[in-house]
Design a protein around this nucleic acid. Structure first.
Length: 468
DNA sequence: ATTCATGATTAGCG
DNA sequence: CGCTAATCATGAAT
């Protein structure tokens, strides 16, 4: 192996040519000495010293020496030797460099960024455009309001991500070009195959892509945080205002046989609730919230009808009040007074028939209405319904009615029983009885909203049973 | 601190 | 897609 030794010698001399051609081994490997710590320290000290003494002048000098070497008459011979060495070491280089498959983690990140709309094709651009697009896509008024904040934040993340990505790409390209130039430059003094350059570029790209992965990762994190915050905010439960609940309950109990508001009805309910809801900022009730409410209400009502009976009675009565007022007018116009009572029953002011909201009214009503527990077994529900006209919702304040409540109610019943024709025309009162709730716990599926809604009103009208 | 009420979310169904 | 049923999670009442 004396050839190898010769080569090594030659290599050493050439490779260090830039620093000290004449001076022999400027940077001696540690094993050139005895290998003791002192020796190594000495070497390191020498190296440091040499580095420290590199000046512009010495660089120029080195450049000149390099040039001289390039023009050296022995250069081609040395070059061929180096090529030979490369040939021999090429295997190990190729062996050590394996083309790694696409990183699954990177793919995951990419997919997620794509799914979140961070890295995908531009959709909307700025937050304003996004909001506009959302608003334009019909019926998304609630969603866009809810999501606008989220969208704008996402857009911010997206912008940052793209600028950073661009920066990295630019830096990567710059660096690659730089290295390639360097290698090309060096290829004049040492053999560098295109493959090697390629490999180098690959290494650089891998390094930069690992930086990119960090960027992607942190972007993903940011998106996740944003998302979780958004979801948290949505999950935060705020009770609806009393008025909103009232409106919803009125609708529910007046459509008890088919408490499935149409889309339009939901929208109108949402609007109505939002108006009523404290007119405050952000206290809007969305259609989906209305849907949630009805979903919850239906299931909870069905699960425990008994528990909701009082409420049902209350709201039915409330609805009746408004309805009965209309009937009252009709009765007044079309009918002579009943033998037992003058029509004062309908003229009666609410204050004359006030019940305490929580206790007496409910017990009274419950007693009156309960036949079989938990179901509204009221053959003439319309009657009873109307008889409760004076239980006007918000103005229960005294419980001073006592026993004559019953008598008044009876009187009213009597009067109203003669107006059966009208009771049929009252939207909602027929729904008071949960006839729609069939034996196996479901509402009639045959029943459509339009079929149970007041004949005088269009299907889905929210105003139908509750307005004046 | 515990319990109840209630709005929101989720899986599964048709 | 809308619904039901179950469940989660929070607000309010006790």
């Amino acid at each position: 192996m004396d050839e190898q030794a010769r080569i090594m010698q030659a290599l050493g001399g050439v490779s260090l040519a830039g620093h000290s051609v004449q001076g022999g081994m400027g940077l001696q490997p540690p094993h050139g000495h005895d290998g003791t710590d002192d020796g190594r320290k000495q070497d390191i000290g020498d190296i440091l010293h040499q580095i420290m003494t590199i000046t512009d002048q010495s660089l120029d000098e080195a450049q000149a020496k390099k040039h001289g070497l390039n023009c050296h008459r022995m250069k081609p011979a040395l070059f061929s030797v180096l090529c030979e060495i490369k040939e021999k070491t090429g295997l190990s280089i190729r062996g050590s460099q394996e083309e790694d498959p696409p990183d699954p983690q990177l793919m995951r990140l990419d997919n997620m960024l794509l799914a979140e709309g961070v890295s995908g094709p531009e959709k909307g651009g700025g937050s304003a455009a996004a909001a506009a697009a959302a608003a334009a896509s019909g019926g998304a008024s609630d969603n866009s309001i809810e999501h606008s904040d989220y969208r704008s934040k996402l857009t911010q993340i997206r912008q940052i991500y793209h600028t950073e990505l661009e920066k990295y790409e630019q830096a990567c390209n710059e660096f690659t070009t730089h290295v390639m130039n360097l290698l090309r430059e060096q290829s004049r003094t040492r053999p560098i195959s295109p493959k090697e350059i390629e490999r180098m570029v690959g290494i650089i790209h891998r390094k930069f892509s690992s930086i990119q992965m960090q960027l992607k990762q942190s972007t993903c994190e940011a998106v996740m945080i944003l998302r979780s915050r958004f979801l948290d905010a949505r999950r935060k439960r705020r009770n609806f205002s009393k008025q909103a609940t009232e409106i919803l309950n009125e609708y529910f109990y007046s459509h008890l046989s088919n408490p499935y508001p149409s889309e339009e009805a939901k929208e109108e309910l949402a609007k109505k609730c939002s108006i009523t809801v404290s007119q405050g900022v952000g206290s809007t009730i969305t259609v989906s919230q209305v849907s949630n409410w009805f979903g919850n209400k239906r299931i909870r009502y069905k699960k425990n009808i008994g528990k909701f009976q009082e409420e049902a009675n209350l709201y039915a009565a409330k609805t009746a009040v408004t309805a009965a007022h209309a009937v009252a007018a009709a009765v007044q116009n079309s009918q002579t007074n009943s033998p037992t009572t003058p029509n004062s029953g309908f003229q009666m002011k609410d204050e004359e028939f006030q019940l305490d909201s929580a206790e007496s009214k409910n017990t009274l009503l419950t007693n009156m209405f309960t036949g079989s527990s938990g179901s509204f077994n009221l053959p003439n529900s319309g009657d009873m319904f109307l008889s409760m006209q004076s239980l006007n919702g918000d103005s229960y304040q005294g419980a001073q009615v006592g026993v004559n409540v019953q008598s008044q109610v009876d009187t009213l019943r009597h009067v109203i029983s003669q107006t059966a024709g009208y009771s049929e025309a009252l939207g909602g009162n027929t729904m008071y009885s949960p006839n729609g709730l069939n034996a196996n716990g479901g509402w009639h599926d045959a029943m459509t909203p339009s079929s149970v809604i007041s004949p005088t009103e269009g299907p889905g009208s929210v105003h139908s049973d509750t307005s004046n």
